[in-house]
C-alpha cells in the first residue's frame, strides 16, 4: 500500500510541477507494477535536471509488453525478460533498471523473523504438497532446537498473473527437478495446492490469517510490512536472510557478460552471501523509434536514474545495478537505440 501511495504522490507531484514547466518534455511508459514507484520517484527527483516529465501507467508487465509492441508508449516495462526472438520481431532493445528480491513469509506462532531455515528443495516439496506438516522431519532436520508445531502447512500463492510468481517458480524449478517437470515456471502456473491471494497484499493477508501459512512476496513489501521472513539455503550451501546486502551479493556475483539482451537470471547465484531468489526488472525501447526526440528523452531519463538515482532506489528498498552493468547499458543504447540524450 505504501508503494501505491508513493506512486500516487509522485504522480500528483508531477501534475503540480507540470504547470511550472509547461515546456518540459513528456515521455510515456507502461507495464510493471513492481517498478512503478521507483520510476515515479526518479521522474520527480530528476525533473529539474533533465526537464523530462514521466507519464507511467502501472498496468502489469504483460500489458506493458503489448503496449510497446503496438508503440502506444515510449517505453515498456516488464519484470520478466522478453525472449530474444520476440525482441527481434518487435524491434525492441531491452535493459534492466533495478533489482529486487523475493522473500518467503510464514505465519507460525512464536516464530521470530529469519529464525526458520528452509532449503530450496524443502520449499519446493512444501509447495508440491509433499511436505504437509510443519513438524515434518525434513523441516525439523534443518531447524535443530526450534520448536515446530504440528500444524498443517497452508501454501499461499499469487492468484493474479505476476512477475513475482515467475521469479519464485523459476527458482523452485532450479532447485527441484520435480517442480520443473510437473509444474514449471510462468507468471501464473497450475499450482498443485494451496490458496491464491490477489496481489502482494492478498498473499500477505491470507498468510497472516492462517496459522501455518506460507507465502512469497517482493522483499520491499515484506520489509515495509514487517513480515516474518525465513532464511533460505543458497547455492553455496549457506543459510542467508533476505536483506539488501544478500540481494546485492547475488547481483554482483552474477556473470553479466555472458547473457544476451541483459536477459539475466539472478536466481540461485553462487556466492556465500547471495540470496537465492532475486530478479531484475526490465525496460523495453524501440530500436526504430518514430520520434528521435522521445527516444533520446527516455534514454536521458534512465541515464539520470543510473547516475543519480541509486540512493533513492536503496531508500525504496530496491537494489541498484552494479556500475559495470550501467556502463554496459549505456554502450548498448549507443549502438541500438537512435536518438541523442
Amino acid at each position: 500500500m505504501k508503494r501505491i501511495a508513493a506512486a500516487f504522490a509522485a504522480t500528483l507531484a508531477g501534475y503540480v510541477a507540470f504547470g511550472a514547466a509547461a515546456q518540459a518534455q513528456q515521455i510515456t511508459g507502461a507495464g510493471s507494477t513492481f517498478a512503478a514507484p521507483i520510476y515515479g520517484k526518479w521522474a520527480e527527483a530528476g525533473s529539474s535536471a533533465t526537464g523530462i516529465k514521466l507519464n507511467y501507467q502501472a498496468i502489469g508487465s504483460g500489458a506493458g509488453i503489448n503496449q510497446i509492441n503496438n508503440r502506444t508508449v515510449d517505453f515498456g516495462a516488464s519484470d520478466m525478460p522478453v525472449p530474444a526472438d520476440q525482441l527481434a520481431a518487435h524491434k525492441l532493445m531491452q535493459f534492466p533498471t533495478v533489482i529486487g528480491g523475493v522473500d518467503v513469509i510464514v505465519n507460525l506462532p512464536g516464530m521470530k523473523p529469519n529464525e526458520l531455515k528452509l532449503t530450496g528443495a524443502v520449499l519446493a516439496d512444501i509447495y508440491l504438497g509433499k511436505i504437509a506438516k510443519w513438524n515434518d522431519p525434513a523441516i525439523e532436520k534443518l531447524n535443530p532446537g526450534v520448536k515446530l508445531p504440528s500444524l498443517a502447512i497452508a501454501t499461499v500463492h499469487r492468484a493474479d498473473g505476476s512477475g513475482t510468481t515467475f521469479v519464485f517458480t523459476d527458482y523452485l524449478g532450479m532447485v527441484s527437478p520435480e517442480w520443473k517437470s510437473s509444474v514449471g515456471s510462468s507468471t501464473s502456473v497450475a499450482w498443485p495446492g494451496g490458496a491464491g491471494g490477489k496481489g502482494s497484499d492478498g498473499v500477505t493477508a491470507t498468510v497472516q490469517q492462517i496459522p501455518g501459512g506460507i507465502g512469497y512476496v517482493e522483499s520491499a513489501y515484506a520489509e515495509q510490512n514487517k513480515l516474518a521472513t525465513v532464511q533460505l539455503e543458497n547455492k553455496d550451501g549457506k543459510f542467508v536472510s533476505p536483506t539488501m546486502e544478500t540481494f546485492s551479493a547475488a547481483a554482483s556475483n552474477a556473470d553479466w557478460s555472458k547473457v544476451q539482451n541483459f536477459a539475466i537470471n539472478l536466481n540461485n547465484q553462487p556466492g556465500a552471501a547471495s540470496w537465492p531468489i532475486v530478479s531484475a526488472t526490465f525496460v523495453l525501447l524501440p530500436t526504430d523509434p518514430k520520434d528521435m526526440k522521445q527516444s533520446g528523452a527516455v534514454k536521458k531519463f534512465f541515464d539520470w536514474g543510473f547516475t543519480h538515482g541509486n540512493d533513492i532506489a536503496k531508500q525504496m528498498l530496491y537494489v541498484p545495478l552494479p556500475d559495470s552493468v550501467h556502463q554496459a547499458i549505456r554502450t548498448a543504447w549507443q549502438k541500438d537505440v537512435p536518438g541523442t540524450m
Binding site: 500489458a63 493474479d160 501464473s188 491464491g196
Partner: peptide
C-alpha cells in the same frame, strides 16, 4: 480479472 493483465496479445 486475475489473468488478463499478464496475457500477451
Amino acid at each position: 480479472a486475475l489473468e488478463f493483465p499478464e496475457s500477451p496479445a
